[in-house]
Computed example of a mutant assay.
Amino acid sequence: MAISKRLCHVLHGPYLTDPRVRREAEALAELGWQVDVICLHEPGKPRRDVVNGVSVLRLPLARKRGSVLRYIFEYVAFLLLATLVLTVRIGKRYRVIHVNNMPDFLVFAALLPKLFGTKVVLDVHDPMPELFQSKYGLGKDSFVVRFLRWQLKWSMRFADAVITVSEEMRKLLNAVVPGLKVWVVMNLPNSSFVRTGQISESERFVSRNGFRLLYTGTVAERYGVRVAVEAMPKLRELIPGVSLRIVGSGDQLEELRTLAQDLGVSDCIEFCGTLPWTEIPKLIRESDLGISILLKDPHTDLCFTNKVVEYVTCGLPTVVSRTLTSEAYYSEEIVRFVEPGDVESFISAVVELYRDPDLRKKMSRNGIALSDRWNWETEKSKYVELIESLA
């Protein structure tokens, strides 16, 4: 294998459930690159693995949700372990090391390889300062947030190239380091995912008992899943056989289970836990309405959630919170906007769509049409062009 075809992804997270990193790694493996991944431990998975031609090394460290101090400990521990692995592998002479945030300062794990000529890519999935503001209620001028801005700036300057997920995120990063070129590679599903998730109109809109809502993703306060649970008693009165399927895990999961029991709706809410990304198309086929109802804060205003684009390009009508990024990318012809955190607004939108199948059909057709220009195949060419130019 030619030296110029070696790349390593570094990910503080589980590889199998991160569709963005998997798509990027597998895109290069298909082109003949030798691709390695260094990631967190995944329960039930071997320490060393090969997934679709990508070599995966899972470090003996698992993600645990907790306080700011817990996250800092975990980030630093993973940084040290990743640094050790990359130092031991210095003989592999990676041409590119692709570091996925969070944390941003994980790029410094590639310090020694960079000194030997390896190019370093920083992929900013989430805005770390804004996320900590949202998650922990920190002020924008607090010490922690100011430190996170500082480390983001120097992490970007250290990297040879910076990638992010949307134009709104690019603008934010350019405000941190003015004049720095930031590549946008959107987090879009590939054509096989979309084909698997799509079904004919006669199947999707067939008259049947029940009306299923689908949420996939992290179950945390900022993602607004509680709004959907609180809406279920009223929705049950207005929509015969309504149900809610919640797929994912997070620090609010047990709270929502308890809330569902207290509201007397636990029999119509299904908590599925975390499922492989490859199972999501089946869930989309089985659903009547997708939901992504973020609360509004500095972080969620910048979120380009992959779940929404997966829903709409598969033809699933979707209810979406009105945020800066969602309004920049979607129109009312494709999604139904609701006010963030407003239970009554959510109920109104769901009931309206339930009662108007023609509107749902129109949204479904518009979402499927969007997949012609919004797809991973288009974004993949941008990513491969960048990596090839660095190598």
Score class of each variant (00 low, 15 high):
residue 1 M to H: 10
residue 1 M to G: 09
residue 7 L to K: 05
residue 13 G to L: 08
residue 13 G to F: 14
residue 14 P to T: 11
residue 16 L to R: 15
residue 18 D to L: 12
residue 20 R to G: 05
residue 27 A to S: 06
residue 29 A to D: 05
residue 36 D to I: 10
residue 37 V to S: 01
residue 39 C to N: 13
residue 47 R to W: 12
residue 49 D to F: 10
residue 58 R to S: 08
residue 58 R to L: 01
residue 58 R to K: 04
residue 60 P to M: 01
residue 66 G to R: 06
residue 71 Y to T: 14
residue 72 I to C: 14
residue 73 F to P: 04
residue 73 F to R: 14
residue 85 V to T: 08
residue 95 R to L: 06
residue 99 V to Y: 06
residue 100 N to E: 09
residue 102 M to T: 14
residue 106 L to T: 03
residue 126 D to K: 11
residue 132 F to G: 06
residue 134 S to Y: 04
residue 134 S to T: 02
residue 146 R to T: 09
residue 148 L to A: 12
residue 161 A to L: 04
residue 162 V to H: 06
residue 165 V to C: 07
residue 166 S to H: 02
residue 167 E to R: 15
residue 173 L to G: 06
residue 177 V to H: 11
residue 178 P to S: 03
residue 181 K to R: 14
residue 186 M to F: 15
residue 192 S to T: 09
residue 195 R to W: 13
residue 200 S to T: 05
residue 205 F to Q: 06
residue 213 L to K: 13
residue 213 L to F: 07
residue 213 L to H: 03
residue 219 V to H: 07
residue 231 A to H: 03
residue 238 L to S: 12
residue 238 L to I: 12
residue 238 L to K: 11
residue 240 P to M: 10
residue 241 G to S: 02
residue 254 E to V: 07
residue 256 L to Y: 09
residue 259 L to Q: 05
residue 260 A to H: 07
residue 263 L to K: 09
residue 266 S to T: 09
residue 272 C to A: 14
residue 274 T to A: 15
residue 274 T to F: 15
residue 274 T to V: 11
residue 276 P to K: 02
residue 280 I to V: 07
residue 285 R to E: 09
residue 288 D to N: 11
residue 289 L to H: 05
residue 291 I to K: 03
residue 294 L to N: 14
residue 295 L to T: 08
residue 296 K to Y: 03
residue 298 P to G: 00
residue 299 H to A: 08
residue 302 L to Y: 02
residue 302 L to M: 03
residue 308 V to C: 02
residue 321 S to R: 02
residue 325 T to L: 07
residue 326 S to C: 05
residue 328 A to Q: 08
residue 329 Y to I: 09
residue 333 E to P: 15
residue 337 F to W: 00
residue 338 V to P: 00
residue 341 G to E: 04
residue 341 G to Y: 00
residue 342 D to K: 00
residue 343 V to R: 00
residue 345 S to F: 03
residue 350 V to P: 00
residue 351 V to C: 06
residue 355 R to G: 03
residue 356 D to W: 07
residue 360 R to N: 01
residue 366 N to W: 06
residue 367 G to V: 09
residue 372 D to A: 13
residue 376 W to R: 14
residue 382 K to N: 09
residue 383 Y to V: 06
residue 386 L to S: 04
residue 387 I to M: 06
